[in-house]
Design a protein around this nucleic acid. Structure first.
Lengths: 66, 66
DNA sequence: ACTTAATGTAAAGTTTATTTTACTTTTTGT
DNA sequence: ACAAAAAGTAAAATAAACTTTACATTAAGT
């Protein structure tokens, strides 16, 4: 899976730490998500897409491995 | 988090086992998801919503605990 | 160039998702 | 009523998410 969190963060001018705090996870979790180190839970995907006011599918994408 | 997997399954006339096979998880995982025993990964949410041709947000919902 | 903020990374630990096996209960069809 | 299919459940095991701490690297501002 891939995602556009970094881009959305730039659009909204948020640091990783800002975003982490807003959705209630650690900064490293945001960093690891952006770097595709692991797949976030659906709760996180919903929170992030709600914050960025975009559908989940516009931020998170399945790829070949999935 | 809550979800409408059971309803979507009924609409598409799929058993838990059918759905499990289609998205590549065990039947118990589907059952547990329907029973809100745990939160699925975003990959599963995307696969399920793709299969049911509906946005993730129409199948999975944040609630108070989230 | 210097300082600070932001990002990247990593290891160890905890929690939670998911699997496997297996059994019970409920639903459905005849 | 009976048989078969589907759903519910549970325990043990494994994999993966997420946290915490801590440090290194990069970017940005003065």
């Amino acid at each position: 899976m891939k995602n556009k969190i970094k881009i959305e963060r730039a659009i909204h001018d948020l640091t990783q730490a800002d975003l982490a705090e807003k959705i209630g996870v650690s900064r490293q979790t945001i960093n690891a998500m952006e770097k595709n180190k692991y797949v976030p839970s659906t709760v996180l995907a919903l929170k992030i897409s709600r914050l960025f006011k975009k559908p989940v599918e516009e931020i998170f994408f399945l790829d070949q491995d999935d």
